[in-house]
Design a protein around this nucleic acid. Structure first.
Length: 1156
RNA sequence: AGUCUCGUAGCUCAGUUGGUUAGAGCACUACACUGAUAAUGUAGGGGUCGGCGGUUCAAGUCCGCCCGAGACUACCA
């Protein structure tokens, strides 16, 4: 019996540390282990201190509000931020990352009110403002711990220990400084805007409050079409028709708006109520809503009460022809001043409903106000007895009483006879405690009054959608309210100019959404009538003639001192330098009364500042500029290199950052910005608690780990596109990406430990490494280049996909698959070392490339490798503590060989085609075959294939490749037009040429191949085609099994000779023995003894391939015996052999395998 | 209503300056492979590229209109 001596166990002396091996992949466990490691070793802080002194990469954290729970979309947003900060850190930058909390604003107030069971009215009554504010401070940090947990668990590195907090006095002081700067530049002013206002609640409402569910309701109101008499018309009795759903605004009308491109008609007809003959003007498309078609031919006779209104169109014109025409005031109660009562153009005018002519009351409509201001039309204003300009309706929702108005104004501008009939009446019955919905409304009264005068063309009840106050359930009014504005429009051009220097991802957000927003910029309304926020630091005398803008605590202190001296205040509560000793919030700040230069009292304007100003000011306020930080110091953290936030922040944080930086510092606030999209559920619906489709981020991270979650989010779609979050996708990432990489590492660790490979040997020179090593290293370096460029371009999705593709397609399914034997066969030779080094390098580089996206797994992989090899050392020569301390490897261009990459792709393609042919012809890969033939169109092609020939042959178990020259006349070829080269040349004749080429016979193809050109007839024209205009492919090789793919054709020799058959049997045998080894849980290095039941065919195979079989299976003794003997053996020993195998078709043979 | 984004296989997504068999993964079915094995390969089915019109020799790709989803802004007389 032959004893095969196998040299598997190496006697290498270095049996030191081992690469860690794992039973299975557990991402959550890795997550937790690395998290603990980071915490215990202060890895984040270390990474910051290690990079100290390096160039700064400036990042701003957009502050979240911790009064709501974090959702899965926050994981998305924070992953984006983290990825680029980690990346830049690995590019050698120092990346400070200060967390922040947005603490002011309405949601906080609402949360507090809900918790305490109070409403705004109760503030100052049931609860002191003081207590209320304390409750706000607590409320706003309600979920801070949860946020901190999520931040840490998902691996977002940000300094949570020293966050900026917007309610701190220092923070507010910087805001005051900025407001002061704006004030001094003349960019702050007081004006009014039309805002939703609830007379019942006596307060303005935000659009947020208006969008709360149930606020918009269908209500039935009296609507009317009023007639506005045209002045100086060629027709005596001509009127504009304008529709309104709020007749109570008609006394405040000061203009009519038309659409410049809308067609209008002048119509001869009658007033339906008075039967007076009139001419009316309205939009042509709306003619049908007032007149029936047949009425245009009826005699021009009409009596009040008749059903059909006869009419004649007398002329048509465009809206722009009407602009400037004056009309008589409809209800001449109040004189508005010059410029009123004429037609203006309005871009919002439609012909969807109404008359195509819009009644404009600038005091009660936002559009109205805007268009009136643009056209110099005055609003209809009253002067109250305090001398202030007011709309006709007071804050309780009623027309002003005459006694509440300025006496002079009444005398000069008010028609007392007309107005007194309506003075003091509420514009909606809901506001008047004495009225019900059944009572006649003011709308009806006005409509009837106009009807009497013959100025109503149509009065009817109509149902329409109208907003209601969510607190009182009563209708809201649009109402002019005092506001402070920042004159952003003054620097509009500069804002646009600076925006062009910002790199937006995606670009369209910057040019489109944000760019358009800037083009249509309006002044920034800063005022909010609330309690919990940054107070507006402006004090005014009661007459508004003197004012002061406080821009620092010190300035406040000094002004209070003056006031104390004057006796307006008893003490200075802001006297101390200790910022913890006072509070700049309401109500304390409201107690401050200052003294004007003329010695009068000045009171604070009660408004708060828009919370967006808080967050937009964070570049300055987070460093308490200029009080704790000089301009030079500020410049180290301003402007930001990078910010990222949801696309919904375009007009929020992105704008306010940009606006404040531009207005105050004439600078951008950020150079690069990624605006990420929404996270939707897997069906594309918005996630909400209400729908119950919200995904709990903690559960996802607990189950799949942060890495898989992050990787899924980043690789699935571009950050700025909406993500349809499907939990199965996370699992797929776990299996496909991390599972594959884990397998690859496990494979490496298994054999590296056996061989004690610790990367101690010098690197095998690149040109001494085999083709396959040079190939994967070439691909690896291409990958480095690609990934680096993608990260640098803020394209994390491209980076993630490229890495994933490399791991799966190149490393696992080609490199490792083809190289397996090199790791477990043979001596510890240069080839083997080369294999180890190559695979090690791939794994290590991958850990670095993926570190920004999958920080935990990458850390684990890196440490597992580096702790053995110590390739990356710290200053004490110990293994470096983290992959996040390393610099991203640079692509080595000398290692990139595009020819090599190309021919390996060719090899993969050929293998895939051969396997496909085998499959189709039912030929197992274990059955060796003699030959494949490949038609070769060029020398280059042959050269390329020759270099990867061995790989192909062993992979598909074939003995040889034969190239067929193009001239070979066995080949059946096919010609096809090259559209790209022929198209531009022949244009319209393309189709005919393509058809002609398709029907080329073998002779014609041979001719063009030989001559390099051919003439054909197309539509009686001779056309000369060049070989380069034609694609020629091999279609068939008669007598062979053939496959085509693109330009490559493969033919397979399917003959199975006796020798091939025997070899197949030996391979089958090896396969069975290996399976049994595994089933019996033998170690990979155990030697065995094999006994198999005798069979003549098997004997032949074994005789011929004895060395091969025993070598592959670590068999010391292989013998064929009588079946009996095996059974006898089994009886004697208590081992558990596998009883039968079927290496030859239809024959089952007994077998016994045991360890030596 | 305006601005912007998106619409490609059952699902998630690629698709170069327009160039002729529209790709990949998942899922499904069948078969294979098995010292990486809860992995992998091969094959198959599955597409009016949202719709209509236009430009062009040629459109998933460019233009216009429409439909659908979403975001933001504004809000309708």
């Amino acid at each position: 019996m032959l004893i095969f001596n196998h040299n598997f166990i190496r006697n290498r002396s270095c049996m030191g540390k081992k690469y860690q091996e794992y039973k299975q992949l557990d991402l959550t466990a890795i997550n937790k282990e690395i998290f603990k490691y980071w915490e215990e070793n202060n890895i984040f802080n270390q990474s910051l201190s290690l990079s100290k002194g390096s160039p700064e990469f400036i990042f701003y954290e957009g502050p979240p509000s911790a009064n709501g729970q974090p959702g899965i979309h926050h994981v998305m947003a924070r992953a984006i931020k983290d990825i680029f900060c980690r990346y830049k850190s690995m590019k050698g930058f120092h990346v400070a990352r200060k967390a922040g909390w947005d603490t002011h604003g309405l949601p906080v107030e609402l949360g507090v009110e809900k918790n305490l069971g109070i409403t705004k009215e109760d503030i100052g009554k049931k609860i002191s403002v003081d207590e209320y504010n304390e409750a706000c401070k607590a409320e706003v940090m309600k979920y801070k711990d949860m946020w901190d947990n999520l931040t840490k668990q998902m691996g977002y590195w940000v300094d949570l220990d020293n966050p900026y907090i917007t309610f701190k006095n220092e923070y507010i002081e910087t805001l005051w400084f900025l407001i002061g700067e704006l004030y001094n530049k003349g960019l702050l002013y007081k004006g009014y805007t039309i805002q939703p206002f609830s007379p019942a609640a006596g307060t303005g409402l935000s659009s947020h409050e208006l969008n709360m569910p149930g606020c918009y309701r269908d209500v039935k109101d009296t609507t009317m079409v009023a007639q506005f008499k045209i002045k100086n018309s060629e027709y005596p009795n001509a009127y504009f028709l304008a529709w309104t759903t709020t007749p109570w605004t008609l006394p405040s009308n000061t203009a009519l708006a038309v659409g410049t491109n809308i067609d209008y008609v002048w119509v001869n007809t009658f007033n339906p109520y008075s039967a007076e003959p009139i001419i009316v003007l309205l939009g042509k498309p709306l003619l049908g809503s007032f007149f029936s078609e047949e009425a245009k031919d009826l005699p021009m006779e009409y009596a009040s009460g008749d059903k059909v209104l006869p009419y004649r169109i007398i002329k048509e014109c465009k809206g722009k022809d009407l602009i400037g025409i004056e009309y008589e005031q409809l209800l001449p109660w109040v004189k508005p001043g010059d410029g009123a009562f004429r037609v203006i153009g309005g871009d919002f005018v439609t012909t969807d409903d109404g008359t195509g002519i819009v009644h404009i009351a600038p005091t009660f409509g936002a559009d109205d106000d805007r268009v009136a201001k643009q056209n110099g039309v005055p609003p209809l204003a009253l002067i109250d007895n305090e001398g202030k300009r007011q709309p006709m309706v007071d804050r309780t929702g009623k027309f002003y009483k005459i006694e509440d108005l300025d006496a002079n104004f009444v005398k000069e501008n008010l028609n007392i006879d007309l107005y007194s009939l309506f003075a003091g009446k509420f514009v909606k019955n809901a506001y008047d405690a004495n009225l019900t919905e059944k009572d006649m409304s003011l709308d009806v009264e006005i409509a009837l009054s106009l009807k009497q005068e013959g100025k109503a063309f149509k009065i009817e009840k109509q149902t329409h959608n109208y907003p209601h106050c969510w607190r009182t359930d009563k209708p809201i009014l649009y109402y002019p309210l005092d506001s402070w504005f920042i004159r952003t429009t003054a620097l509009k051009d500069r804002l646009i100019e600076l925006n062009k220097t910002i790199n937006w991802k995606p670009e369209s957000t910057g040019t489109g959404r944000f760019g358009n927003w800037l083009e249509n910029l309006v002044d920034w309304n800063l005022s909010r009538s609330r309690y919990w926020g940054t107070p507006l630091p402006i004090w005014r005398t009661e007459d508004g003639k003197e004012e002061i803008c406080i821009s620092s605590v010190e300035m406040l202190r000094n002004e209070i001192d003056k006031s104390v001296v004057k006796g307006f205040m008893n003490e200075n509560k802001y006297a101390s330098n200790d910022y913890n000793s006072f509070d700049l919030h309401r109500p304390y700040i409201d107690d401050v009364v200052l003294v004007s230069s003329k010695g009068e009292k000045m009171f604070r304007e009660t408004d708060l500042i828009d919370v967006w100003f808080d967050s937009g000011a964070m570049p300055f306020a987070q460093v308490h500029y200029p009080f704790s930080c000089t301009k030079e110091e500020l410049n180290k953290s301003f402007p930001a290199d990078f910010i990222a936030e949801g696309v919904d922040q375009t007009r929020g944080w992105f704008f306010t950052l940009h606006a404040i930086a531009t207005l105050v510092f004439d600078s951008v606030a950020f150079r690069n910005v990624v605006s990420n999209g929404l996270v939707l559920d897997k069906n594309g619906n918005k996630m909400s608690k209400r729908l119950g489709n919200a995904i709990n981020p903690f559960e996802v991270i607990e189950k799949y780990g942060a890495d898989a979650t992050r990787w899924y989010m980043v690789s699935n779609s571009q950050p700025w596109e909406n993500l349809k979050f499907d939990i199965d996708g996370v699992d797929e990432v776990r299996r496909k990406l991390f599972g594959t990489l884990y397998n690859t590492y496990s494979f490496f660790a298994l054999y590296a430990n056996i061989d004690s490979f610790a990367f101690e040997e010098a690197e095998v020179p690149f040109n001494e490494r085999p083709e396959i090593d040079r190939w994967i290293l070439s691909e690896l370096n291409s990958l480095i280049e690609m990934v680096d460029a993608s990260y640098n371009d803020y394209e994390p999705t491209k980076a993630a996909r490229a890495i994933g593709n490399f791991i799966d397609e190149y490393l696992s399914n080609w490199y490792v698959r083809l190289c397996r034997r090199r790791f477990w066969k043979g001596e510890y030779s240069q080839d083997k070392i080369s294999a180890y080094q190559t695979l090690y390098t791939c794994l290590e580089v991958l850990s670095q490339l993926m570190a920004p996206i999958a920080p935990f797994f990458a850390e684990k992989l890196f440490l597992d490798l580096n702790n053995i090899s110590n390739k990356h050392k710290d200053t004490n020569n110990n293994p470096i503590g983290s992959v996040h301390f390393t610099l991203l490897p640079k692509a080595n261009h000398t290692l990139i060989d595009k020819d090599l990459e190309e021919r390996m792709q060719l090899a993969q393609k050929i293998c895939s085609m051969v396997l496909s042919l085998r499959k189709r012809n039912n030929l197992k890969v274990r059955q060796p075959l003699q030959k494949i033939m490949i038609p070769a169109s060029s020398k280059e092609f042959i050269n390329q294939v020759e270099k990867v020939k061995e790989l192909i042959l062993s992979e598909v178990n074939i003995k040889e490749i034969e190239f067929l020259s193009a001239q070979n006349n066995v080949l059946v070829k096919k010609a096809k037009a090259d559209f790209k080269s022929l198209g531009p040349k022949y244009g319209q004749k393309m189709k005919a040429i393509a058809n002609a080429l398709n029907s080329f016979n073998q002779e014609e193809i041979a001719l063009i191949e030989k001559e390099g050109k051919i003439s054909i007839d197309i539509d009686d024209n001779k056309i000369e085609l060049l070989l380069s205009d034609v694609e020629i492919t091999t279609q068939d090789i008669p007598g062979w099994v053939v496959m085509n793919e693109g330009s490559v054709t493969i033919a397979l020799d399917t003959t199975i000779t006796d020798t091939l058959r025997k070899e197949a049997i030996s391979r089958e045998l090896v396969n069975r023995i290996q399976n049994i080894r595994k089933e019996q849980n033998f170690d990979v290095i155990d030697y065995i003894i094999v006994e198999i039941e005798y069979n003549p065919l098997l004997e032949e195979a074994i005789n011929e391939y004895y060395n091969y079989i025993t070598g592959e299976t670590l068999t010391k003794e292989l013998s064929l015996v009588r079946k009996n003997d095996i059974e006898v053996y089994i009886g004697q020993h208590n081992t558990k052999p596998i009883s039968t195998i079927d290496v030859i078709e239809g024959v089952e043979l007994a077998i016994n395998i045991r360890k030596v």
